[in-house]
Structure formats: C-alpha cells, structure tokens
Write a protein that binds this DNA or RNA. Structure first.
Lengths: 179, 179
DNA sequence: TGATTCATGTAACTCGTTACATGATTAG
DNA sequence: CTAATCATGTAACGAGTTACATGAATCA
C-alpha cells in the first residue's frame, strides 16, 4: 500500500512546507530509508487537500514575488490520519541493491569490474558518513526547538552507523582483493 | 530498469533451477538486499527462453513423477548477457522501511506504539542474525564446491553485521525509552 | 480425508519513475 | 545573457504485487 501521504503528513506535523521542499527534505535527510518522486508528491497533495487532510496557506503577504510557491499546512483531520497510521502494522521492508546483487553473483572473471563497483560503493558510504555527521551536529545544536528531534537523531544515528559499517566492510573486501 | 533477468541468470550460473526454486532462494538467502515475486519470475523465464538466454532441461528421466517441475539451464548467450550486466553502472539503491519512517516522525504521543514497533524490529533482526549465522556455517563447510562461494560469504557477512547493528541499536533505543 | 506445501501461470491492478511542459528566479 | 536552480504539474509508461485458477504431492 502507498505510503506517500504519511511521509507528507509526517513532515507537515513540524512545519508548513511546499511540495518542492518536501521532496528536498526526503532526498537529503531520509534517503537512506525512504524516497519519493514529484510524480507522487504533487498529485497526493492535491488529493489530500480535497480530503481535508491538509490546507494551503494563502500567504500572498510579501506581494513582490510572483513565484508560485504553495505551502501546505496539516489539519486536525490530517493529524488523526497520521496517528492512526502510527498504530498500524508495518509493511515488510523493501530493499534493492544492484551492487550487492552483483557482488553475490561475481566470479573470478568479474574481479576487475567488481573492484570498481566496490570502490564506488565505498565512496558513497564515506559521503554518507560525512553528510550524516554534519546533519547530526546541526540537529544537536538546535535540539530544544522541536519536540521530535530526539527521534530523528536516533534514526540518523542508525543511518550513520550503517554507513560506517559499509565503509569498514568494503575496505576489508577490497584488501582481500589485493592479495 | 527491470533487473529480474539478472537475478535469474545469476542463480542459473551455478545450477539448474525451476521458477519455484528461484523464488525460494531469493526469499531465504537474498531477502536482505533483493526480492522478486512469481508474477515477475515466471513471465521473465518464458521471455528469456524465447530470447535464447535459457533453455529447459527435458529430463523426464524419473518417469514416476507427474509434477510438472520445469528446470532451466543458462545458455552461452545467457552468460554473455550477465557478463555485460556485470560491467554496467549500478542503479542507486532503493530502500523503504516503514518502521524507520514512523520512528522518524514519532512524538511523545506515540511512545506506546513505537515501543511495540521497536520490539518487533528487534525480534526480526535477531531472527536474521540467527538465520545468517546458520547459512554462513553451512556455506563455510562446503566452500570448496562452488567457485563463487567466497563472494556469497562476503555479502552474507555484511548482512549479518547489519542485522547485528540493528539488534544493538534497537536495544539501545528501547533502554532509552524505559527511562 | 483434509490441510498444507509444491508448482506453474495469468490478469488486473496499483505503484512509482521518467519525461515533458511551463515559467520565474538567481548565479556566474 | 545564459545556465542552473526553483517550482508546479501531468501523461505515459514500466515495474511490481496480489489475487486467482489449477492441480499434484505430502503430511497429519
């Protein structure tokens, strides 16, 4: 079952956001366990507005900008919806890693290519370690502002440790390849 | 782009298998980084047979059984196809964890539910640690038989360590909840 | 004997990505 | 001034799941 609405409602719980901003946040902060595309987000926002789960904030206050940035706000109906979801059973995780699939099937004939894939995998993991560390420090600084920052920090902590594991593992495998 | 054919070809590299067996192997051994459904596997096998990437082994040798179990064998064309794939760029990983999504959005109001979800998550991770350990021991025993067992062991090792990380992390978070 | 598992396959449907169209704004 | 980014939206397509149908074999 489609979960797009819950990601959106979850983010709107904290602050008013536009579709574009929602996409950006998912991309940057949630990419290690979730992803959504514009083709899902925009239609879902319209649908949820019709259903009364969100509403648009008609803040044309700063009249200078003609850039049509539509900010959404969660309604109490929306809060009910997300609360109900929170209590529901979780769907089984869905994971697909083409790299691990190749790794699993690789033979002696593929050593050269696999080394390349491994190095790329390692680099990506290092990137993630870097980004997560940054984001973590930023969140810790402003931990008082929002009520659920401690939750986000916990998820982030898992993401960081997972990325670190990936770095360690790929380093080990690469060393093994050199011998 | 659809990857079903590569999983199938990868498994057929090692041994002759039926569609049902392919599904089972993916479910048990590869579930932490890949999944496929019957609705993908069976049509893909037919298509690949037409394309000449696989062929059926008409072994009606043991005439007693009428159970129509169709075993597939990889052809040299199929081996070319998988080799080409091995050299190609990897698609970005695709991951969806409804549990982590809930964790990310949880507030004080959801503490009771989240504890339940956390315990379930922990249990599943413990199950994985158990299963991966078993499978690893079995593979190590027969490591000589197949050429690419060392690769599988490496992937399995990552899966195991990841599952262990999940157990540690959820234990910590649960302890945090108790206070 | 009846339930469960083994085994193959298809059709309908939902989900999700990609490509495209449009136009404003900002950075170099 | 031009490229990149911001911003919204839709249509078409492809991927993937689920439900169903069928029937043999095994287990209790």
């Amino acid at each position: 079952m489609k979960k797009t609405r819950y990601v959106i409602l979850g983010l709107l719980q904290e602050e008013e956001l536009s579709g574009y901003e929602i996409k950006k946040i998912i991309n940057i902060r949630m990419s290690f366990f979730w992803q959504e595309s514009f083709g899902q987000i925009y239609p879902e926002l319209s649908k949820m507005k019709e259903e009364g789960l969100v509403e648009t904030t008609d803040s044309e206050s700063s009249g200078k900008s003609k850039l049509e940035k539509i900010k959404y706000r969660i309604t109490s109906l929306g809060r009910d919806e997300i609360k109900q979801w929170m209590e529901s059973e979780n769907e089984k995780d869905h994971i697909r890693s083409e790299f691990l699939l190749k790794m699993y099937f690789a033979t002696d004939e593929n050593t050269i290519e696999m080394k390349k894939h491994l190095e790329e995998f390692k680099q990506e993991a290092e990137q993630k370690v870097f980004l997560f560390t940054l984001f973590q420090q930023e969140l810790k600084r402003i931990a008082e502002l929002h009520s659920n920052h401690s939750q986000i920090l916990k998820v982030l902590d898992l993401g960081l440790r997972q990325a670190q594991l990936y770095v360690e593992w790929s380093t080990e495998v690469l060393e093994d390849y050199e011998m």
